[in-house]
Design a protein around this nucleic acid. Structure first.
Lengths: 196, 196, 196, 196
DNA sequence: CCTTAAACGAGACGGTACGTCGCGTCTTCCT
DNA sequence: AGGAAGACGCGACGTACCGTCTCGTTTAAGG
């Protein structure tokens, strides 16, 4: 998705200006108000130049999102799966709680339902690396018997990330560290009693 | 959300036609391709009539969504919280797995981030009644000692519904009944081992 | 054109209110800004009532124009054709110089080109009585040898009224009494010298 | 009024197509039925393009009128003021007798009452050059004593053109050459007898 | 005086056109 | 030879009026 230095010469500055302008417009006016004309005029770039490098508005925004988000994510290895998952979830929650980036992300998810390219970009640039890091944490935990050998890592990850995204979508509960710790705890320990 | 018979009298047929046409267009062309002009011409209704009753495209679609979804939801009371939650989740998953309704729902969630009216409509028409039904199931379970007295019902619901919505968003895992049963089981029983 | 008391009972007040509102709107916003909706709401009358009595916007306006203008016209008989024509022209000029009525009249003439009913209304309500009065003046003058026996009354009237309407249309010269007297004088006396 | 090659470059074909389509619509459906949508679709041009170059419907039509009329006007110099005025009036009458152009012209006059830009365009593009040519004819005649030295050229022109426009407006008398010759004769010679 | 049917106000309705905005393509001119 | 500037055809936007059509509600004529 990054282009940086392709054959066409003068990109670089324009490329950066487009991504920044797009994000700024999302921030100031919201997703729906972002237009190619608006990005072009704000970035001091011609529309033709934009269409040379991106097919759709969402292609610009997904790149802007991923670029802006990329440095903020952490994949620790503390020796405790609980701690690692809390740390990952916290770092994720920091991004998604940002009013601009969080809303942008949900909008992109919505569009991705009808735009396979966008879906691919989001999967490759966002979901896959995070799931992989999560699976690794859990497999390490299984290896050291912190978790049973028959644990389904995907199910555990859904148990941790599911509530997180749910709260992003509906905003009915906080996404601070204690809450995330509670969520992780419930996944590991269950609600207690139960039928067995 | 229902309009039926406001002071301004005549509606009914037009009202229904608009909702149906809107849904049909989502089905056939996707959310982004739905236009007021398109709805109007398909419904045999004038644009003025649409704007008389709805402020935005999303107001039409949320009403269409809720109307279409309303009869399909179940809130059972079997005596077992696990069974009730699996049943609720299954009935929810049936709606959200529908390629049309599921995608529409995600799109609406995206728009709701920038449109408080839409957010309110979704909360009141969708989330609140389902959360309330879920809380009731859990409180009944606590009353009969199926769950500990200090259970946090909201946390349990997030644990059940979170993975469900997560799979809706990313489509990385199925939403059939066995999967949902697994999810509920993990919430009740935890992953085993753990720190304890 | 007047309706006053047709079989349908309650007109009267509404009828008057419509004409007055129509004229007021022309006065305040200009011909093009007059709408049936606007007249109706200003007159406190329903659109249906307006359509019951008038076919078109222009039918309202021509009636309003003629009603408003009718009392202001004079057909004197002073014994001098010159004086009578100056008097008639002056009284006519008074109406057409009015910024509201003059402009309204020109607009109606423009519409009449495409609307035979309107053309008929203008001819019967405006032009015919004035031409007839003018012909009478000239025939009286011929009878008393103020004008030659072979005078063409229509040509004389065109000579007097033509310049008057021309100045109404283009506003390039005044329409006060001295000017009208000059015009009448030129018709009677010619420019002098000439070939004849 | 001509646009041809403004800073914003590309026009020409669209420009011509708009004027031609507008005139064609007037011809086929009448002034009131001309719409911007109609012109655009007939000309194969977008509405935005039309609004880029013209402010109002009437701006299109006045330009179309003047363009279409321009080549048809004659300003002769025969040595006789009577002959020159008859020739000018005849050439004018030919335009205004055309059912399309004549009606269009009257409609434009009506609108010009409420639209100063239109009034200016008509004055500059139509009235001023014709009056100037007429004044020249009359001043030449005064110079060679065909007319008295104290003749008021404007009054003479009103005497000739006034009846012509009057017959255009009301259509109560013909506009052929003999009629125009009669009108000119009356202006030069008067009605005879008179009071002196 | 009381009934009753018309004419009425209000305003919703299916339409058409408005004037604006954004799309994605294109051409022209400047650097 | 790029790229900014921006015109272009297209089509949707949300608004304003059109002329038609129910709706109750007067209201004045006739029983």
């Amino acid at each position: 998705m990054t282009r940086e230095q392709l054959p066409g010469r003068r990109s670089a500055r324009s490329h950066r200006a487009v991504l920044e302008s797009a994000l700024a417009l999302v921030r100031e006016q919201g997703y729906a108000a972002v237009t190619i004309d608006g990005i072009a005029s704000r970035a001091g770039v011609s529309k033709a130049t934009i269409y040379r490098w991106w097919n759709h508005k969402s292609a610009i925004l997904v790149e802007a999102f991923l670029t802006s988000v990329h440095p903020q994510i952490m994949f620790p290895d503390s020796g405790s799966a609980r701690e690692d998952l809390v740390a990952q979830a916290t770092s994720l929650a920091r991004v998604l709680s940002d009013p601009v980036l969080g809303s942008l992300f949900v909008s992109l998810l919505g569009e991705a339902r009808y735009d396979p390219d966008l879906a691919t970009a989001l999967r490759d640039g966002w979901q896959t690396p995070r799931r992989a890091a999560g699976v690794e944490v859990i497999e390490r935990a299984m290896a050291r018997n912190e978790l049973p050998a028959d644990t389904d890592p995907e199910l555990v990850l859904d148990g941790v990330y599911g509530p997180l995204y749910l709260r992003l979508l509906f905003g009915h509960a906080p996404l601070d560290e204690p809450s995330l710790r509670q969520i992780v705890a419930q996944v590991f320990d269950g609600t207690g009693v139960g039928r067995g």
